[in-house]
Design a protein around this nucleic acid. Structure first.
Lengths: 164, 164
DNA sequence: CGATTTACGTCAGCCATGTTGACATATATG
DNA sequence: CATATATGTCAACATGGCTGACGTAAATCG
């Protein structure tokens, strides 16, 4: 129990260290979503809308199926927020060309505007944390978090558009 | 736009890098909570119960007020899950000694059992990610996430019990 | 070509968990 | 004694998950 923790010793798996890691994730996520949530409320939207706007912005032309795989929610849950976003003019659906069953999703200019507004806040928060922590720390952040993500999505991370 | 990203160059704040950081947080959180959520469902509980059980376990004798400050939810929201946890015998409330208005919260043996079961899963997930990434990466993970947490809670992180 | 699968949508209802607002009680504090 | 604090409670509402059932159009398979 002596001093087997932080530093270069690879055996840092004390319960307290692990709990700190858990809490960091909880607090960071809590504070990371607070501002966007407040902005969304002004539009009558919620966090679910943000996720949809975010990933459609990130993957223009994404299909509903792909979006469902990312969000890991049911199509009924997605349909509800998607319908609102389409109705209010933030997202457009275009029929697929190769597969006409698909509804390819795109942000409208209005959607892009909101996306930028929402994500700007998170980008600047991350940017600040990155800057303060330094490049090596960023690499560590990335590799630890990537290690927590289930395999199926790990690949998605550095490859914005799946080969479709 | 050349190669100003990962490595030792401090100017890595490209939009894509920041977005990757955002997505890492989203995916890690999503996968981090999936298993505990499934276990909780067997007890008729949800994620909110987990958070209460977790922080009461982490800070035995915590007051309701302190717990509210950590969770950042309303007392009405907390009261609902707390009542269920007390009723079902997972948490005990003891009147404070110095301040008898307080209800100090403790896990019962049964509560500790569930806490262990839930958190074990997250601990092992973190432990694996820590092991695979290495000690330096862990330090980076900690410092970047800490930088994202609002000031008021940053101090809480390495100091399990506030001076109360 | 016909049967089946796939992509997507929709209706209905349920549950968990957040919110606001109002009010009550016991205790501490000035 | 007046006021502030810690806690609890009732009621109503919104968001965003879920299941189950059903429908349609288009692709794919045998």
């Amino acid at each position: 129990m002596a001093d087997v923790n932080r530093g270069s010793n690879p055996l840092f798996l004390r319960d307290d260290d692990l709990r700190e890691g858990i809490e960091l994730l909880f607090f960071a996520y809590r504070d990371f979503t607070a501002r966007p949530d407040a902005i969304l409320a002004e539009y009558g939207f919620g966090r679910a809308h943000h996720r949809v706007i975010y990933f459609v912005g990130r993957h223009p032309g994404i299909t509903v199926k792909e979006l469902l795989a990312i969000l890991k929610i049911t199509k009924q849950s997605l349909a509800r927020v998607l319908r609102q976003l389409v109705t209010k003019g933030f997202i457009e659906q275009h029929q697929g060309v190769q597969d006409r069953r698909q509804r390819l999703l795109h942000l409208t200019p209005r959607g892009e505007e909101l996306e930028a507004k929402l994500t700007e806040n998170q980008r600047s928060r991350i940017a600040r944390a990155y800057r303060e922590a330094g490049a090596d720390a960023v690499a560590g952040y990335r590799s630890v978090l990537a290690g927590m993500v289930d395999d199926e999505d790990r690949e998605r991370l550095n490859r914005p558009r799946p080969p479709s």
